[in-house]
Nucleic acid binder design. Structure first.
Lengths: 300, 300
DNA sequence: GATTTAATTGCAGTTCACGCATAAGATAAA
DNA sequence: TTTATCTTATGCGTGAACTGCAATTAAATC
């Protein structure tokens, strides 16, 4: 009833190398063992695969017919197992990560670059989408790792804090507040304010934090993407409230980024993965790199 | 280093049936054994294939990727081994037999018919050719079984006597000798005699036997095939010396078959196979049927 | 919190596979 | 024919691996 892979492998190697002894050397076992394996296999099958005198080994008619199949099976098996071991040893493989757009364009690129240097050849599928869909993608197994914001607890998901960044005030140098070290929410003039859509997790979180302190802020402009908001500010349309990482220091000429206090509202970014699902070695390695990123952020 | 087929099979069945217990039942082992097999496989590979709580079993990302391959391998293996066992148990399979034309058209058809009844579906490739080429076909492995005449001993070949039949004299009813119970070689009139080509083994053997008794007979007509000779006799062209089996008793109207003595020259037919080559089960079964034919001939 | 279901682990028995040493068979050379 | 040599087969003892039972642990449901 049980299938004897060793026997078939022995048969293939003996047939290809033309002898028990050579095959034994190749397989790093004694010739005795191969004799036994072949005998066992033949006994199990009820027919001879190899006609052997003490001098020569030759395929039987059945053996000749079976050899190509056996060879294919042994090869596939060896290959498949080899690939798996390679994945395990060298964190090789492909995986999918879901990520909110901000991180996809700011924190991720550096990590992906490092990852590509350490593990060349590994393909990463990146789904950049809203925080809600990031959560769903991980939950439904479309992505192994999610980079998003904390959400309502789900028993299947694990959220690991990665970094947090304050919302900041963005304006042009000409703006009256541009020379301030920090500004407060009450300094905002709604008539010129650009905020991101209330559909985004960032905005929901922000509104919630402000509401706790009796502050309400809707803004005159509402856009979907941070990049759009930055563009509008740069063009002199107005001022904006955005996560700090939206713009690195002095990344754009004529643009100022000022701390926003009273209160400081911090957007939390976390890594998400399914609770009971082991990450593939490739994803695992990436996950660790992401966590290192966290430490970098903590240190600064 | 050693590849664990059991483990992979366990993985596949568990993944397909969705649980260790169900898989255990399917494989006729305890669920404990499967736990161990999977653990061993995963330890060997260095990664998890199945994420399992005590309640549910689920594929990991790697497991999902590997499952199709594993399934294919396990299926192929099971199929291939199954086919071999079937070949062995039910003498199933195809094989090639080489046969001299006389036998191919006289003794063989009945055997093939019986064989087809007992082992339906088995394909037989039949090479009908000269005795020399029958021998070569077997020697070079193109045919597993040969039906031919004894030749010079070859260390690689085994010849098993099957049947022998006398050469007989064939003529039309109008012929002066047609009413004789038997005729002798000296009764032959060369001017009207049709014999088969001196290239055939039968002819070589006949000449040798006659030469021992100082008889030489070349005939006026020489043809390649027995069927041709019979045709010529039937058309009244002449008389012929042919193996008895060329024509069953009274098989053709107006044709007589008369014993030829002084001496009686018998053509021996034997089965040939390679000495150290095990026959495939299908061929083995056919070989046995052929030998029964021998007994039939001996009895008559 | 109790119950049920399903995988895991401790333990012990047994089988199975392996390797050493030796035998036996076959070919080639003397 | 005998001998040398090469290659597979076998006897036997050892050790590892696999298995199964029974108890355990963990998750999900009531």
């Amino acid at each position: 009833m049980k299938i004897d892979f060793d026997g078939i492998q022995a048969f293939v190697v003996i047939a290809e190398l033309g002898g028990f002894s050579k095959a034994a050397e190749y397989l790093h076992v004694t010739q005795t063992a191969l004799t036994r394996r072949v005998q066992k296999l033949e006994a199990y099958l009820g027919l001879r695969l190899l006609d052997r005198t003490t001098r020569y080994v030759e395929l039987t008619a059945v053996g000749r017919e079976f050899l190509p199949q056996a060879k294919a099976i042994v090869n596939e098996m060896t290959m498949a197992v080899g690939r798996l071991k390679d994945m395990s040893r060298n964190s090789r493989g492909s995986f999918t990560i879901a990520c909110v757009p901000t991180m996809a364009s700011h924190a991720l690129p550096a990590v992906i670059k490092r990852y590509a240097e350490i593990y060349p050849g590994n393909r990463i599928r990146l789904i950049d989408t809203s925080a809600f869909e990031v959560r769903d993608a991980v939950l439904h197994g479309q992505a192994e790792i999610g980079v998003g914001v904390p959400t309502d607890r789900h028993p299947e998901l694990v959220e690991v804090p990665m970094l947090e960044e304050p919302l900041m005030f963005f304006c042009r140098e000409e703006h009256p507040l541009s020379k301030m070290k920090s500004v407060t929410w009450s300094d905002m003039r709604e008539a010129e304010l650009i905020v991101v859509s209330s559909m985004t997790a960032t905005r929901v979180f922000m509104d919630y934090q402000l509401a706790k302190r009796g502050i309400s802020l809707s803004g005159a402009y509402e856009v979907q993407h941070h990049a759009t908001a930055i563009g509008l500010v740069a063009a002199g349309v107005g001022t904006a409230i955005l996560p700090a990482s939206t713009l690195g220091e002095g990344a754009r000429p004529g643009m100022c980024r000022i701390a926003l206090t009273g209160p400081v509202v911090k957007r939390k970014i976390c890594l998400i993965h399914r609770k009971n699902n082991t990450l593939s070695p490739a994803a695992e390695a990436f996950f660790k790199l992401l966590l290192q990123q966290k430490n970098v952020a903590d240190a600064s």
